[in-house]
Design a binder for these strands. Structure first.
Length: 434
RNA sequence: GGAGGUAUGGCCGAGUGGUUGAAGGCGGCAGUCUUGAAAACUGUUAGGCCGCAAGGUCUCGUGGGUUCAAAUCCUACUACCUCCGCCA
């Protein structure tokens, strides 16, 4: 949520930001609501003040035995209360509409976020590694949706049987590879100063509102009959861990990571990425979240991207970093870098991580503040950041495709061998020795 | 699932329907004393919103209700605790 005072005092900047984001913004309606809200508050509080004063007088009169005088004043207060209920109702209505309006407005893009209309305007920041030249090696690379079933490590049909379309099953070394990737990623992040967490896979509406999946994107979420939601990312839980808290500046930055399953309806993506394990209803992800001061927030974003890159580098997977433009960054984000891994089946780079600095946008929603007595009085909203480190399913697809061999087997990246029980090649005869 | 109990400020804990935003203690901060520290003593110590300000208003788990007036009464919900039952 944007700061209402900021919106009031920076109307031109907000208008421009929302244009750059392709987000609708009714500046006139905002001003109208903002003004009538403040007016209604003043009316309401004036009436409350009068009521409070008279009530105290009644108390004194009762103590002094002036029953009749007190009764007269009571009558006046009743009249005030009648008027007050109307004023309060109006204030609540205006307040609710204004709040709903602010809750549906995305974050202000940072000044360094490139201006652009859509994903085609995302500038590339850097590349790492070189995609394999399969032609030079003399064979046509297969897609993971072919290699997986052939090696009996991914089973799409049974996933559909057990659940529905866009679910899959991993078996044998496929399941082992999933577990290896999760452990490897967590170990890497923990070694780089992140605290590991284990969190619920379900969250309530308040939690989802804190990170802004709600109210606007409810359709993207799976919901239980009890009113809980399946989390679409551990960002939700890690960012809300400190909801309603005031942290001490000396604690910051906090660096958290967690593995969780992630659940997405993918309601609006019918027909996109229908093959393989790229876009599915349930996938594993290791997530990184940071709580930082405004002063260090964007430097922490750069460091977080490097932490995500570290995984790809250790796995020796070619990737590139792109900076999302204003038209493509997420709702909560002020600045986002995406990591895109090389996938031979697409003959292109495909998103595998998204790292964002959400400034104080989520902190204001989730009410997360920090104190720094040496720098300022009271408390202020801190900055939250989140990034994938990485999406496990897509990493598995990248490993399978980039490490495939002419005979249809898959070499295990060196970094994963210790996590794969000593297996160096995924093949039907592979033997796990550890 | 059944029965009972509890919910107050950073923490502990008092609170009779009426200057109670809330006693007291601990902790924190500032000071006195001291060469310094400790101890002792003194003072101070929630937040949101509206307002240029003065000031006002709201907040005692959450939401309703009663009343001129609610931390205090009623009610629903939520969380926690105890006992019983069941269970990875």
């Amino acid at each position: 949520m944007l700061d209402i005072k900021f919106v009031r005092e920076n109307q031109d900047a907000v208008r421009e930001a929302m244009e750059n984001r392709n987000a609708s913004w009714d500046a006139a309606r905002f001003s109208e609501l903002d003004e009538s809200r403040r007016e209604a508050i003043q009316q309401e509080e004036a009436l409350q003040a009068e009521r409070n004063t008279l009530s105290k007088e009644i108390g004194k009169m009762m103590g002094a035995g002036q029953k009749d005088e007190a009764e007269a004043v009571k009558e006046r207060v009743r009249a005030i209360n009648d008027e007050l209920s109307g004023v309060s109702a109006r204030r609540e209505a205006v307040d609710g509409e204004l709040r709903a309006m602010l809750m549906s407005v995305p974050n202000m893009p940072d000044a360094t976020t490139p201006v652009g209309a859509d994903e085609n305007d995302n500038p590339e920041v850097r590349r790492w590694g070189t995609p394999r030249d399969f032609a030079a090696e003399g064979f046509e690379p297969k897609a993971h949706w072919d290699l997986g079933p052939e090696l009996d490590i991914i089973d799409f049909d049974r996933g559909v049987k057990l659940a529905e379309s866009r679910f899959y099953v991993l078996g044998g070394l496929g399941a082992r590879l999933e577990r290896a990737l999760i452990s490897f990623m967590l170990d890497q992040h923990v070694a780089r100063g992140y605290k590991e967490w284990w969190v619920p896979a379900l969250a309530n509406a308040a939690t989802l509102t804190g990170t802004a999946q709600l109210p606007k994107f409810e359709g993207d979420l799976f919901k239980t009959t009890g009113g809980l939601y399946l989390i679409p990312t551990a960002e939700v839980q890690l960012t809300n861990l400190h909801a309603g808290e005031v942290l001490d500046a000396s604690q910051l930055p906090l660096k958290y990571c967690a593995f969780t399953p992630c659940f997405r309806e993918e309601a609006g993506s019918a027909g996109r990425d229908t093959r393989g394990i790229i876009r599915v209803h349930q996938f594993s992800k290791v997530e990184m979240v940071k709580y930082a001061t405004p002063e260090t927030g964007f430097a922490e974003l750069e460091a977080m991207v490097e932490d995500a890159e570290n995984i790809l580098q250790k796995l020796e997977l070619p990737y590139r970093v792109i900076s999302l433009c204003t038209g493509d960054i997420g709702f909560s984000s002020a600045k986002t870098y995406d990591l895109e891994v090389w996938l031979p089946c697409y003959n292109d780079y495909k998103e595998i991580s998204s790292c964002s600095c959400c400034t104080d946008f989520q902190a204001r929603r989730a009410n997360i503040k920090y104190r720094d007595p040496d720098s300022f009085k009271g408390s202020r909203y801190l900055y939250t950041l989140n990034g994938s480190g990485l999406a496990v399913g897509r990493t598995m697809a990248a490993v399978i495709e980039n490490y495939q061999q002419p005979d249809g087997t898959i070499r295990v990246p060196d970094a994963l061998v210790p996590y794969m029980g000593g297996v160096t090649v995924i093949e039907p005869e592979a033997v796990v020795t550890a």
